[in-house]
Design a protein around this nucleic acid. Structure first.
Length: 374
DNA sequence: GGTCAATTGTAGTCATGGCT
DNA sequence: AGCCATGACTACAATTGACC
C-alpha cells in the first residue's frame, strides 16, 4: 500500500493523479468552491474566502491492494456553505444518524420513530438570525412540555433553511425524528398527540398569532438497512444540491448578499441536537455533534431505509446545507394533516386524510418543500 | 506563524414562581 | 396539582488578541 497525494491547481484541475471514482463530481464541486470564495470576498468575509478557495486542494489517498483508493487525509475547510464539505458532511451525518437510531433500537427494541417538521413564517434576510433563535427557543419550550416528555422518549432535531426565489424571503424550519414506544398509539395510554395538538403546542411555543405548519408522520420504511452504497448515494444526491447562488444567474452582489445572510445567521449556531434515548445513544457512540464529524473517513456504505426516506422524501439536507430555493408551491402557513387526528389503527399505517384518501405510503403529500431532483 | 488564554455567543439543565 | 415561563448557571465552541 502506498500513499498517493493529489494536488490541484487554482482552477481545480487535478495535478498528476486522476481520481478513481468517475461518478464523484469532484472537479465540478471544487470549481464551485472558487465561486463561493469569490462571493465571500464580495460579501466581506476574506478569511472564509481563503478557507473555501483552499478547501481540498490537498488530498492524500491510500492505494489499496485491490486497486481501489481510500481518502486518507485532506484539507477540508469545513465551512457550512462549502459545496465540497456539505456533500461529505451530509453523507457522514446520514450514516451517523443511522448508527444512533440502530443503537436506540438495540437498547429499546420496541422503539418506533416519527418524523416531525415544524415551520415558521418566512422572514426577510435581516431577520433570519433572530428567527433561528426563536425557532430553537420554541423547540426547547415545546420539548420541555410535560405531555411531550411523557410521550416522546427521545429526539433528534435539525434546523434547515430554504430561500424563496420569488420574493427572496427565507424559510427556516425544524426536521425532527421522535422516538416513541408502541403504546404511544394506544388511545388509552394518553400518550398520543394529535396533529391538531401538535399545531396548538407549536403555536404556543412559538408565541405565534397564526397556526404554523406542522407535519407529523410515521415512516413507511422500517429500521432495515438500505441496499448499500446506492442508497447512501441516493440520499446524498438530495443532501448536496448545489447552491442557487453559486449556480444561479443572479447578479454577483445579490448572490454575495445571500452568502452574507446565511453566514451571519448560521455563525456559531448549533443546527443539530439530540435528546432522550437518542442523546444517550449518540453519547455512547461519540457522535453527539454531527456537524463536527470527520469528513475524511466516511463510512456511509449503509444507512437506514427510514433515514434515506427522510432525506429523499422530505428533502432533508442535514443542517445548513440546504440553500436550495423552495418551490413556488410552498405555503408555510398551510397546515398539513399527516397522521390524522386520531391514532392510526396500526402503528405506521398511513391513515385517511380529510378527503378520505389514503396517501400512498409515507411519501404522499410531501413534495411541497423541495424542488424536483435535478 | 503558532500557541494559548480570554472573551463572546449559543444552547442545555435546573430551580422557581405565576397562572389555570 | 399540573403546566408553563423565566432566569441563573453551566458547558461548549468559535473567535480574538497577546505573547513567544
Amino acid at each position: 500500500m502506498k500513499d498517493i497525494t493529489i494536488l490541484t491547481d487554482v482552477q481545480g484541475e487535478v495535478i498528476g493523479e486522476k481520481l478513481v471514482d468517475p461518478k464523484y463530481p469532484w472537479k465540478e464541486r471544487k470549481l464551485k468552491t472558487f465561486k463561493l470564495a469569490r462571493l465571500y470576498e464580495v460579501a466581506g468575509w476574506p478569511d472564509y474566502a481563503t478557507r473555501t478557495a483552499t478547501c481540498s486542494t490537498w488530498l492524500q489517498y491510500l492505494a489499496m491492494e485491490d486497486g481501489m483508493r481510500q481518502l486518507h487525509a485532506a484539507n477540508f475547510c469545513k465551512l457550512r456553505l462549502c459545496p465540497l464539505c456539505i456533500a461529505r458532511r451530509a453523507k457522514q451525518s446520514a450514516y451517523q444518524l443511522s448508527q444512533v437510531m440502530d443503537k436506540v433500537q438495540l437498547d429499546h427494541p420496541s422503539v418506533m420513530y416519527l418524523f416531525l417538521t415544524l415551520t415558521v413564517r418566512n422572514c426577510p434576510g435581516d431577520q433570519l438570525g433572530d428567527t433561528l433563535g426563536r425557532l430553537t427557543k420554541a423547540w426547547k419550550s415545546l420539548i420541555d412540555q410535560r405531555q411531550i416528555q411523557r410521550s416522546i422518549k427521545g429526539w433528534f432535531r435539525a434546523i434547515e433553511i430554504t430561500r424563496n426565489k420569488d420574493d427572496g424571503t427565507y424559510h427556516p424550519h425544524i426536521h425532527a425524528i421522535l422516538a416513541v414506544e408502541p403504546g404511544y398509539f394506544a388511545r388509552k395510554s394518553g400518550e398520543y398527540i394529535t396533529h391538531k395538538e401538535w399545531v396548538r403546542r407549536w403555536r404556543l411555543a412559538l408565541k405565534a398569532d397564526y397556526d404554523p405548519s406542522v407535519r407529523i408522520q410515521t415512516t413507511k420504511a422500517k429500521g432495515e438497512l438500505c441496499a448499500g452504497r446506492a442508497a447512501a448515494e441516493e440520499a446524498a444526491k438530495y443532501a448536496t444540491k448545489d447552491s442557487d447562488y453559486i449556480d444561479s444567474d443572479l447578479p454577483e452582489w445579490m448572490a454575495a448578499d445571500i452568502v452574507d445572510t446565511y453566514t451571519r445567521a448560521l455563525r456559531r449556531r448549533r443546527l443539530t441536537a439530540f435528546g432522550g434515548w437518542l442523546k444517550e445513544a449518540a453519547a455512547a457512540l461519540g457522535t453527539e455533534d454531527l456537524e463536527d464529524g470527520d469528513l475524511v473517513h466516511l463510512d456511509q456504505d449503509t444507512i437506514r431505509a427510514d433515514v434515506a426516506e427522510l432525506i429523499e422524501d422530505y428533502g432533508w439536507h442535514f443542517g445548513a446545507g440546504d440553500y436550495v430555493l423552495t418551490s413556488r408551491r410552498v405555503n408555510p402557513l398551510r397546515v398539513t394533516r399527516a397522521e390524522g387526528d386520531t391514532p392510526p389503527a396500526a402503528p405506521g399505517r398511513p391513515p385517511e386524510n380529510e378527503e378520505g384518501e389514503r396517501p400512498s405510503g409515507a411519501s404522499a403529500g410531501r413534495r411541497e418543500n423541495r424542488e424536483p431532483p435535478r
